[in-house]
Write a protein that binds this DNA or RNA. Structure first.
Lengths: 141, 141
DNA sequence: AGCATTTGTATCAGAAGGAGTTACAAACAA
DNA sequence: TTGTTTGTAACTCCTTCTGATACAAATGCT
């Protein structure tokens, strides 16, 4: 698969919006920094808009800005906004129901999957966009 | 991407091996339960072998069995064995170094990535293969 | 009103990777 | 020796992400 870098792109773009405060930034400008195509950025911004993270304006002097203060946005929201998938996929084809393991394995895996997702969200909730922005500005990873 | 279900498959297969104790199971048999092709299973077993989780034998009466007791194998080992990728990918193309955000965002994201990976491993370490096997057997997810 | 700009979205081609399949050499038991 | 099973290569198919072009709709400016 082409690895999913949407979360990385999202954090990058949102950090730029955080930096420019209430000023509108254009998709073309954002794309240049992310080093990708403007349409790719717009698609991403669409997801972030659905998640109420950004506000966009069409037309001249249009562009996108944050919908909220950077310290009111945490990374788990961003992750949820762009992450369609799970950490690992359950079986593509259902396992055989004739097998004592196959019969119940999916339920158990689903349970573990939810456990992991909770763990990830918990870690990400610790960072706000403001935190990330400051880390980037100060050049300390 | 075709979603990566290798972890699910691996846990499934290893649970079956745990169930059959020291008996060798054939890839054909495992494939039937997982509902996939025998070669797909063998490829997977190859990874698990590299991680010292299983032992295989060629030839008549050959097959695969666990390399260790099920209570000495935890899920984080299985996850590491099959998981080539990370939870999210860093930028495909490097961000622009001319941009104050682009210049440092990768380091920050890498740091967060490692944080998450630790979180996942920590959650998975709590389950042994024996635990999973018992959950499946008892039909409680 | 008219024009330039920018988003939103549809659509297509290309790249990458997983899954499924066939084929066959190598290892092994009887 | 013969039959069985793994290990692996090679190929196709399918899905998904990325990049690109195109254009309607929305908006600000004059």
């Amino acid at each position: 698969m082409a690895a999913n870098s949407q979360f990385s792109m999202a954090v990058h773009v949102l950090a730029m919006l955080a930096r420019s405060k209430d000023e509108n930034l254009k998709s073309e400008y954002l794309a240049a920094s992310v080093n990708t195509n403007a349409v790719v950025v717009r698609r991403l911004l669409g997801l972030l808009h659905q998640a109420n993270l950004v506000v966009s304006q069409t037309g001249a002097n249009g562009g996108t800005r944050l919908a909220r203060c950077p310290d009111e946005i945490d990374l788990s929201e961003i992750y949820k906004a762009v992450n369609c998938g799970e950490v690992f996929a359950l079986h593509a084809k259902s396992p055989s129901k004739d097998c004592p393991i196959g019969r119940n394995i999916e339920a158990v895996l689903g349970c573990i999957q939810r456990e992991i997702d909770k763990g990830i969200a918990e870690k990400l909730t610790r960072y706000t966009l403001q935190n990330v922005f400051e880390m980037v500005e100060q050049g300390k990873a």
